[in-house]
C-alpha cells in the first residue's frame, strides 16, 4: 500500500442532491473536504480534495446526514508516493444516512508490450 500524498475528487450529482459540506473518511476519521468548488445540488458538479500524507487503509465518501444523494459519477485523482499520478472513475450510486462509498483504488498494475 503506497503513501497517499493527496487526492482530489469530482462528484457529479444526479436527480436528488444534498447539502454541503461533503465529508470523507480516511482510516475511519471523518473530515470535510477542502479546496471545494461547485455544489452538490441536483445536476451540479462538486470538486474538493485533501492533503493526506499518510497510508490510506480505507478512504470513503460519506453519505448525507438526512435524505438521499444520487451520484452520477465520481472521479478521484490520486497522488501516491513512488507512483505516477492515477485516477479512478466510479459509476452511479445513491448514498443516504446509513451508507458511505469506498473511493480507494490501488495504483494500476504496470502493463507493457512484449
Amino acid at each position: 500500500m503506497p503513501k497517499l500524498n493527496r487526492f482530489n475528487i469530482e462528484i457529479e450529482t444526479g436527480e436528488r442532491g444534498t447539502a454541503l459540506p461533503v465529508h470523507f473518511t480516511i482510516n475511519n476519521h471523518k473530515m470535510p473536504l477542502e479546496d471545494t468548488q461547485g455544489g452538490v445540488g441536483a445536476g451540479e458538479t462538486f470538486t474538493g480534495g485533501f492533503e493526506i500524507r499518510s497510508f490510506a487503509h480505507s478512504l470513503t465518501l460519506v453519505g448525507p446526514e438526512t435524505g438521499q444523494w444520487d451520484i452520477r459519477k465520481i472521479k478521484v485523482d490520486f497522488d501516491c508516493e513512488q507512483n505516477p499520478p492515477y485516477s479512478a472513475v466510479f459509476g452511479q450510486l445513491t448514498l443516504d444516512e446509513t451508507t458511505e462509498v469506498n473511493i480507494w483504488q490501488d495504483p494500476p498494475v504496470p502493463t507493457w508490450d512484449v
Binding site: Q92, T99, T111
Partner: peptide, 27 residues
Amino acid sequence: RRVMQPTVLMEQVEATGATDQILIKAQ
C-alpha cells in the same frame, strides 16, 4: 455506516485492434 463498493468505470487494458501486427501486452 455500510460501506458500498462502487462500479469501477475505468477501461481495462487489453491488446486490441484490427491490425495485421500481433500485439501482446504483459501485466
